[in-house]
Design a protein around this nucleic acid. Structure first.
Lengths: 345, 345
DNA sequence: GTTAGCACTCAACAGAGAGGAGTGCTAACA
DNA sequence: TGTTAGCACTCCTCTCTGTTGAGTGCTAAC
């Protein structure tokens, strides 16, 4: 059995009307609201066909039809029109994002908030792994007896400082010498590089301060290790938007959903990694079982052409896919641009 | 009309039973469950009295009694026994908190999580204002043309760095001179002090670099301004515990409650500042109107004898006050101790 | 002052009936 | 052969009704 043009029109009507009203759609409703030029009876026949094909279903005998996962899937893949964002929507986004924002975490957080506001859905953004930044140079500054301030500059321009325990009898000159050796040897290398290749070389140059070197290496490692808060941090906004959906009129459902949202690890699982373009996960396709009634639209944003994080929205399967997809798409591009622009050095 | 011992016993029974079951408590129930040695009829008479006194009420004519705010208040103030935490509970807390935790924010966050877990309520902790730290000294390090790294050491030992725009034609020596002036003049002063008293002096010493000084002051100010994330940050955990309460079977109530929880400013308002001891706010006593059906138990924790932040739990008015109060009390002390211990310098 | 007895109230529940939305089927029609 | 009108049928939803049971207040007896 094939989907002809008329079936397409009817299915599109069903999905769109159900998205708008959250009520099962009857044949008469379609005939009235959508000008298809055919009678309710004909529509009924077609609907019976599509029910057999597994695209729609009846909640009960005397109800209208609602789409099932496969129906949404077909709608998203084949029937849906892909509207551009309106000028107004774009300008809102641009207004919000062009405010100079210093911190990368703040950019992400703002993006997440904006996305949930504009879609009235729940937004998820996973922050980029800063990682992969290489060592550029280090400085030591006096702190107090037995301790120094170690300032590390990374290749991506990030500056970090840390208090370092040193022996009581280490002079400023010795510290400077250590810094010099580090700066000469490991500039442009990541910490793993150092561990693998350069350790021996560094040791041989500074045999006298070997224990101090060990210490400094240890500390550098902690600097280059992602601090917990930067490691793929999850931003989730608009969770309460879900409560506006009639699908979540039941507190039990609300609880199980919000419980997922509270656990970062499970939220991360929601966003399927895609390398390019938009990913749409509908209902049962989802790998988190509490979200069997939800759909997820996700994408990957990039820094200098390299995918570094994910962004997406989540809503009931009955969501406005067209709008949500346009939003996520635009925000992904906007974020990619924003993050690539702000890199310096 | 006075509360005699028998009324006390009956009210205590009503409150305790209602806390446990969330069902209106009838005279027969009390007579059966609590061995008061009087008949249901007598209990009914006493209950009628107490209803007149505004301590309890009937949801409808043929229902048992439930406490109203004033009833809870009387219970908390006069009737409640104050149990100590069990050895087991204490050991759980101690086990969790004695794991060495480096970051103060992490201490707070752990505390909040623990508190909500142990009470099955929603916990709120407001992190201390680090503020009030004074300037100790500053250093400049090279960054790239036109920019330098400004490293600031505060009196409390905190080290912070920031990228500073300087003119292209500013030499390292000039920067050093500026640093020297700052280090001599404003050591031990807060930024407001500087603004008020020392500005003139600094200007006169460095007339030549006046514009640069302005810039440096600007930057110092931002360093000494609390970064957004540290400014009385709100930690809220176990919001979903509320959904377990039969009081929140209605999604509308859930939404309005969670909406309050999402706004830090409103959450802060929930915790009434107290200088000493525990504060119990019951139902309508609360200043956030969405929480008229909730009670809040809060306290203030200290660093070196000075109150710096608040901690508390929030639950339905029908909460286990005794347990919650014991928990908050213990956690407050534990936090105070933990934070005072870890200060150095 | 306390208690047993009793009439009364009212929420909660279940069942019955009406109304209505929507279907599938059949037969007629183009 | 595809389309449509008509009609019987299904089943949800709402309302009404009666029943049940928990719990009360009142009265009178102890």
């Amino acid at each position: 059995m094939q989907m002809d043009e008329r079936k397409n029109k009817i299915l599109r009507a069903i999905v769109q009307d159900y998205i708008a009203t959250a009520e099962p759609v009857g044949s008469r409703t379609i005939a009235k609201k959508f000008d298809l030029g055919i009678s309710p009876a004909t529509i009924r026949n077609e609907m019976a066909d599509m029910e057999e094909m597994g695209l729609i279903e009846q909640p009960h005998t005397s109800a209208g039809r609602i789409p099932v996962d496969a129906g949404y899937r077909y709608y998203v893949d084949c029937l849906m029109e892909h509207p551009k964002l309106s000028i107004k929507e774009k300008s809102v986004i641009e207004q919000e994002t062009t405010k100079r924002i210093a911190e990368i975490q703040e950019v992400i957080s703002k993006t997440s908030k904006l996305l949930s506001q504009l879609t009235s859905l729940t937004s998820i953004v996973i922050s980029p792994n800063r990682g992969k930044s290489a060592f550029n140079r280090m400085h030591f500054l006096p702190y107090q007896p037995g301790q120094a301030i170690m300032v590390v500059v990374k290749d991506n321009g990030v500056v970090e400082n840390q208090i370092v325990d040193i022996g009581d009898n280490v002079t400023a000159e010795e510290l400077q010498r250590i810094a010099d050796v580090f700066n000469n040897k490991i500039k442009g290398h990541s910490m793993t590089d150092v561990r693998h290749d350069l350790l021996h070389e560094i040791y041989s140059e500074l045999t006298r301060q070997r224990s101090l070197i060990d210490h400094a290496l240890e500390l550098l490692t902690t600097v280059f290790e992602e601090p917990e808060e930067d490691k793929n941090k999850v931003y989730l906004d608009g969770a309460l938007n879900m409560l506006n959906q009639p699908e979540f009129r039941d507190v039990e459902k609300v609880r199980s959903l919000l419980q997922v949202f509270e656990e970062d690890e499970r939220v991360k699982k929601i966003l399927v990694p895609v390398t390019d373009g938009l990913n749409v996960t509908i209902g049962g396709e989802n790998n988190v079982k509490e979200l069997q009634n939800c759909s997820v639209i996700s994408a990957t944003y990039q820094i200098d052409g390299e995918p570094v994080g994910s962004i997406g929205v989540i809503g009931p399967t009955r969501m406005d896919y067209a709008k949500a997809m346009a939003m996520v798409d635009f925000m992904t591009k906007s974020l990619t641009e924003l993050l690539s622009k702000r890199r310096r050095i």
